[in-house]
């Protein structure tokens, strides 16, 4: 592999890893630029979308090379983004040669996700706290904790099985609504709506919304639109899941009136 090609591959691999773990478009572009500049490649072009990278270097010489990469929208892992940010900073300060850069990239890639048990516990804790701050009482928070944990277990399972995000959002929010309605139907004095609001928090598209706004602000309209569409569709899926369960509940004789 020629020297040019190897550097371009390194830069695109690093950009790929950033994009995959939820980096913004301008950060990915900047990182690739800085790396190419640090290794003294002069003639280059990079175009990044929220699910793809196009890059070329030295188009006008014999050593020309280009790379196209498809990057699926993935889960957010901010720890890896921080690590890669550190790596790219060191590369652009020329503290890091090609060989170490590859090794470091491999290290960044292998930063693990938190253990499923940890994820489950903290999802439950987060859900119960949200239930509380949106006006639930202590009992609601306890139920939100339980349902939030079950929801997270389901989400981890679907991530492994690579189920479509739409289905997992609809089923997840439907489950949460069903569980809260069940508790309400048992006659416990819970605020059913607060439990649902707390528990749909892990599904709510906060990340997609933030990323899309930042992309739009930086002038990456296409990528911003992709994330905005993602956020809107996710919100709609949650509405469908919650709504279907409430409709079903209307048909149960003797249902307690809601709200």
């Amino acid at each position: 592999m020629s020297y040019n090609k190897e550097i371009l591959t390194l830069a695109v691999e690093i950009g790929d890893e950033l994009l995959r773990n939820g980096g913004e478009i301008y950060r990915v572009e900047d990182t690739i630029f800085h790396i190419l500049k640090a290794f003294e490649i002069e003639n280059y072009d990079v175009y990044v979308l929220s699910n793809g990278i196009f890059a070329s270097a030295n188009e006008d010489s014999d050593e020309s090379c280009s790379i196209i990469r498809h990057v699926p929208l993935g889960d957010v892992h901010l720890g890896r983004i921080a690590a890669i940010n550190q790596l790219s900073r060191e590369i652009s300060e020329k503290k890091c040669d090609l060989k170490t850069a590859w090794d470091r990239l491999e290290q960044c890639r292998s930063i693990p996700l938190p253990k499923p048990a940890t994820l489950t516990f903290f999802a439950g804790l987060g859900c119960s706290c949200y239930t509380y701050i949106f006006g639930g009482n202590f009992l609601d928070a306890i139920f939100a904790f339980l349902f939030g944990m079950i929801l997270e277990i389901y989400l981890i399972y679907t991530r492994r099985k690579k189920t479509s995000k739409f289905i997992s959002n609809i089923v997840g929010s439907a489950f949460v609504t069903f569980a809260s309605l069940f508790v309400l139907h048992l006659g416990l004095p819970v605020l059913q709506d607060k439990i649902v609001i707390g528990d749909i928090m892990p599904l709510v598209p906060g990340v997609a919304l933030t990323t899309s706004i930042r992309d739009l602000f930086n002038g990456d309209y296409l990528s911003g639109a992709i994330h905005l569409l993602d956020a809107l569709l996710t919100a709609m899926c949650i509405a469908v899941g919650v709504g279907s369960m409430i409709i079903l509940y209307q048909y149960i004789p003797g249902g307690v009136p809601l709200l």
Partner: peptide, 25 residues
């Protein structure tokens, strides 16, 4: 560190989750 780290989780209490719920309800 990147700004995203401090921004992303902090935005969640403000995101209108309850809005989505009540609107569909």
């Amino acid at each position: 560190h990147p700004v995203t780290i401090y921004l992303m989780a902090g935005i969640f209490p403000l995101v209108p989750g309850s809005g989505i719920y009540y609107t569909s309800y």
